[in-house]
Simulated assay, not measured.
Amino acid sequence: MLTLRPLFRHRLTRLLHSHSSDLPIVSLHEHKVAIGWNTQTLSKFHNIWLRDHCRCPSCFHPITKQRLLNTFSIPPDIKPVSARPVQDGLEVVWDGHTSLYPWSWLQTMSYDPKFPQMQQKSEKTLWGAKIHQRPPMVHYDQVMSDGGLYKWLTNIDQFGFCFVSGVPATTEATEELSKRIGFIRETQYGKFWDFTSDLAKGDTAYTTLALGAHTDNTYFTDPCGLQLFHLLSHTEGSGGATLLVDGFSVAAKLKQQHPDAYDVLSRLPVPAHAAGEASSFYRPSPGCGYPVLQHDANSGDLSTVRWNNDDRSVMSPSDPAIVDQWYVRH
């Protein structure tokens, strides 16, 4: 199922003819189906790709949204019996089967060529210290309704974090709030827990020592993506401030000012470990770890910042020359 935002839907119409009664032009080629959206825009789809992506109930389960068609049963040289434009989309008749592909879906999935304006990319907002003047925030009562949940998730996607005000000071309310996003992932600390500076676990977070800017779980192959912290009580003593840093903003500045350093952090795998408990030891797979900066394989955009100097293991680069690059100061 394809859901389009109003702005995105408006952009789609720009590729179609100006009159709603006009339909794209469809033509068959040896191995592909071509769709002419207008006199200047043409998309081509391989026959086998179209057959593999049929979304009818016999090929794609309408409830589970899982494939039912065995890809390996499709003949590599499959050809349509016919293909024609209809109001709802591209209708393709195969040998004993009919598929319908909505126009909006075909435009979004077009790969020959890709339409950049059709790709739904999240809008990242890079920020610095001034964000404390007006941080992204939603109220607890809003989040517990669907409209507020969408705003909460949108803020997280745009800024990387979001405060939730008015949360009852109970672990139960905190847990229910967490479940509004999804299931709670279990770690070596438990599924959901509260903690204080009592060294109940062998981790610096369970002490009164200050923690520098870091991301958690660098010793996991797949670190936790979202974390939720709730300060239930702070009636005595001082300290306890939370440091927030926009890693994407830092990376953008580093790339602009020191591209060589950015390159090193994008290539050099950094090993990590968690060994504070006598009965357990954690490290990622592979053991050499992952680069601090990881990028999307398709777009090349920065996708992950993975940094925790406290949990960093012994660096053992394959190239001795990179040691100097790793420790250089800018």
Rank of each mutant, 00 (worst) to 15 (best):
F8W: 13
R9K: 15
L12I: 04
L15H: 13
H19C: 11
S21T: 15
S21I: 09
I25P: 00
I25R: 11
V33F: 07
N38F: 13
T41G: 01
I48M: 07
H53E: 10
C54Y: 11
P57K: 07
P57I: 03
S58M: 02
F60Y: 13
H61I: 01
H61Q: 03
I63D: 09
L68V: 09
T71E: 08
K79I: 12
V81H: 06
R84I: 13
P85L: 04
D88H: 10
E91K: 04
V92W: 15
V92P: 03
W94H: 06
W94F: 07
H97M: 05
L100M: 11
P102H: 09
W103L: 05
S104Y: 01
W105C: 00
L106Y: 15
Q107W: 12
T108W: 10
M109N: 06
M109C: 05
P113N: 06
P113D: 12
F115E: 08
P116V: 02
Q117R: 01
Q133I: 07
Q133R: 06
P135I: 06
P136V: 09
Q142E: 14
V143S: 07
L149E: 05
K151E: 05
K151R: 08
L153I: 08
F159Y: 13
F159D: 12
P168K: 02
E172T: 12
E175R: 04
E176V: 11
R180Q: 14
G182K: 05
I184P: 07
Q188W: 12
Y189L: 04
G190H: 10
K191S: 03
F192M: 05
F195P: 09
F195A: 05
S197F: 15
D198F: 01
K201C: 05
T204W: 04
T208K: 07
L209E: 10
L209A: 11
A210S: 06
L211H: 04
H214S: 10
D216F: 03
N217S: 06
Y219P: 01
D222H: 10
P223N: 11
C224P: 02
C224S: 14
G225Q: 09
H230S: 11
T235G: 04
S238Y: 11
G240K: 00
A241E: 15
L243I: 12
L244V: 10
K253M: 09
L254V: 14
L254D: 08
K255Q: 14
K255T: 03
Y262C: 01
S266R: 12
R267I: 02
A272D: 02
G276H: 12
S279Q: 14
G287H: 14
C288W: 00
H295V: 02
D296M: 02
A297C: 05
S299A: 08
S299K: 03
S299Y: 05
L302S: 08
N308F: 03
D310M: 01
D311M: 00
M315I: 11
P320K: 07
P320Q: 00
H330P: 01
